[in-house]
Simulated scan of single mutants.
Amino acid sequence: MTRPILILHTGGTIGMVPSDQGFVPAAGFHDRLLAQLPAHASAHASEQTSSQLPTFELLDLEPLIDSSNLVPADWHRIANALISRWADYSGFIVLHGTDTMAYTASALSFILQGCNKPVVVTGSQIPLSQLRNDALDNLITSLLLAERSDLNEVVVCFNGRILRGNRARKVSSSHLAAFDSPNFPWLGEAGIDISLKSHLLLPAGDPQFLLPDFQLPEFDPDAVAILLFYPGISASVVSALTEHQGLKGLILLSYGAGNPPEATPGLIDTLEKAAARGITLLNLTQCQQGAVSQGTYATGTTLNRIGVIPGSDLTPEAAFAKLHVLMGKGLSGERLKAALQLSLSGECN
């Protein structure tokens, strides 16, 4: 007997309803979904399917999350809900708000290393509760993806685009095509047919998270920060951040190919002192496309000298999640530096 798909509703626009204060998360998504599925779909909880849709079950995460309020600890709740049910379902859909969807998709890709089933992260720009919405199409496409045996990784499915989860970024707040993968090809596309590029897909792995002694990483919300370089940034601003108690990793969003404002008095010295205190410094480019090539210019070579790690073409979301997960697993120093420069789940070249 084919196992069903689990839809995990974590919150977000897709399940929101209107209120006097604007759209808010709300229970009852199950009934709203059944009301909009094809008319011949069964209304029975165990038979929510038509001749074209796979059987699914829906679980609400408690409490639901407005994704703009997401914190790293929420990744623990979402991952635990999936891992504890891994053997019972053939695939998984995570319904999530769009604002932090790329962060969660990235985090899940690292937590669920060795994935051997589809984990499809989706949502919508317009709630399912509205007459005109993009929610139903995103969800139906995700259901069809979640039953595929050739998909064994975390993906974002949105507006017909099928993207590697840790390569995805939200690129629009107003268009239905809200997500793209600027530094990596789409894994597939849902047009008249759903097509996947088999040569880009990760192979099925060995889900180590099913081991009896597997421990989900604990996430310290103070451990990782992101610093955007901008014209005129002062060393005192950088110092205030790097001296924050609890900070263990700092992502630098630098210019172009990885260049800092080296001439800013005291800035490089401040970063060097942070590295000497054991803070891991990871350098990414502010550009949507391209990778860090630390050392192409003299300013970037300065970062090499003080021990800043070049972040290749990682997205900021993937870097943030990767640092959290690796640190949560207890990695530090040279072990952390080495792991950051490896592609663990297809997140970088």
Rank of each mutant, 00 (worst) to 15 (best):
I5A: 03
L8R: 00
S19V: 03
G22V: 12
G22W: 10
Q36C: 08
A41Q: 10
A43V: 03
S51F: 13
L53K: 04
P54G: 01
F56H: 15
L58C: 03
L64Q: 12
L64W: 06
D66S: 05
S68I: 06
N69C: 07
R77Y: 06
L82D: 00
I83V: 13
S84T: 14
H96Y: 12
D99P: 00
D99C: 05
F110R: 01
L128M: 14
N133C: 07
D134A: 02
V154N: 07
V154I: 01
V155S: 06
C157D: 11
R164L: 08
R169F: 00
S172W: 14
S174T: 14
A190R: 03
I194W: 03
S195C: 12
L196C: 08
K197N: 13
L200N: 02
L201H: 12
L202F: 11
L211P: 01
D220P: 01
F229N: 06
G232A: 09
V238W: 09
G246M: 04
G246T: 04
G246K: 02
L247W: 00
K248T: 03
K248Q: 15
Y255H: 10
T264E: 15
L267Y: 05
A274Y: 14
T280N: 01
L281W: 10
T296K: 07
A298S: 14
N304M: 11
G307D: 11
V308N: 05
S312Q: 15
K329R: 15
G330T: 11
K337V: 09
G346E: 12
